[in-house]
Amino acid sequence: MNTRSMIFTLYGDYIRHYGNHIWIGSLIRFLKEFGHNEQAVRAAVSRMSKQGWLKAEKKGNKSYYSLTEHGVKRMDEAAKRIFKFKPDEWDGKWRMLLYTIPEEKRSIRDELRKELVWSGFGTLSPSCWISPNNLDDKVHSLIQKYEISDYIDFFIASYDGPGENQRLVEKSWDLEDINEKYNDFIAHYSQKFIIDRNKIKKGEMTDAECFVERTKLVHEYRKFLFVDPGLPEELLPEKWYGNHAAMLFSDYYKELAEPANRFFESVFQDGNEIHNKDESYNVLNHPLMTD
């Protein structure tokens, strides 16, 4: 678990609900629980600032960091996918994006590819990306962000054979590999969930330990954002482990939530404005969790 990724997780699951900014001293204290030292935290924060994810603010002799507008948008997108446990109903249409970005804009092309994968697009063929999900707004946002309207064509279409829709899925994603990753997650965390639930009931698990375990849980589960396109149920294999993994994540997350948040607030209240907490945020019933 690299320091940068852990900081993203902390912002996504905690800090953004408490005014979105944090004293660097508190961030160092939180990351210490995971074995990250001060030097690593400061280096990661500096790198994230240069990449446009964080912005700094000085108050007296203290430095505070908050997510940029770009960072907030990415955290919102990620949270909506992490805590959404069932896909939207499919309209039967495919979103198709084709591009011919010239070699001199190779860096933009590489960034676009990363964004498309993260958003859930799959590659039907070189430079042809598809998704059954309504990602129209996302596509138009990417076109505007990278200023590539001259190189992009975007279609909303129906598949008319000669095979079934599953044929497009098989060409564009390796669902067998994704399913295996979900199975590994279930095998590991189903046992940990039972053990930790019993320890919490017996008072044998500290708030700090719950904080560490919940953060690790979110950190591991959010990795599926980079591999699982979130396909509609009609396009998934009959034996799909994603739904089981989502329910396990939800149950485990809620079990750890209260003590984990107690620890967060106990550290955060020193040097930060804890009164900026979002009143709508309920740690036991995450506002984005949907059945």
Rank of each mutant, 00 (worst) to 15 (best):
W94D: 07
W90L: 11
I148F: 08
N37Y: 09
K105S: 12
V45I: 13
L67V: 06
G52A: 14
V41H: 00
V45L: 10
E69G: 03
G92N: 03
V45F: 02
L97G: 00
P132F: 04
F34D: 00
D136C: 02
Y99R: 08
W94C: 06
S119G: 08
P102C: 03
K93H: 11
M75G: 04
R74P: 01
L142Y: 03
T68L: 00
W118S: 12
K73I: 12
F34K: 13
S66M: 05
A43F: 11
K105Q: 11
L135H: 11
Y146S: 02
E77D: 09
R106D: 05
F83E: 05
T100S: 14
K86E: 15
E33Y: 12
S66L: 03
L54V: 07
L124Y: 05
R81S: 14
E115G: 05
K55R: 02
I143N: 00
I82W: 00
C128M: 09
I82G: 03
F85Q: 03
D150W: 10
Y64N: 00
Q51C: 10
E57D: 02
K73A: 15
S66G: 08
E33T: 15
E38C: 09
I101V: 09
V139T: 07
G35R: 12
V117D: 09
P132W: 02
N61Q: 08
D137M: 02
D110E: 13
W94F: 02
R95G: 02
L31K: 04
A44L: 05
I152Y: 15
K86I: 11
G52T: 03
I82N: 04
R109E: 13
L142E: 06
K58I: 06
W53H: 08
S149G: 06
P126Y: 02
L31H: 02
L97M: 04
G35W: 12
F30Y: 11
T100D: 15
T68W: 00
A43C: 07
S125G: 01
D88V: 10
K73T: 12
Q144R: 15
V41M: 11
E69Q: 13
E33D: 15
A56P: 07
S63H: 11
K32W: 12
I148V: 09
S131K: 13
Y65S: 08
R109G: 14
S46V: 00
Y146D: 02
E115P: 00
S63E: 11
G60P: 07
M75K: 07
R74W: 10
Y146C: 04
E111A: 10
P132Q: 06
E115V: 00
G60Q: 02
G71M: 03
S107M: 06
E111C: 14
S149P: 00
P102M: 07
F34C: 05
K84Y: 08
T123H: 03
R109S: 14
M96V: 04
F30M: 11
T100A: 14
S149A: 09
S49W: 09
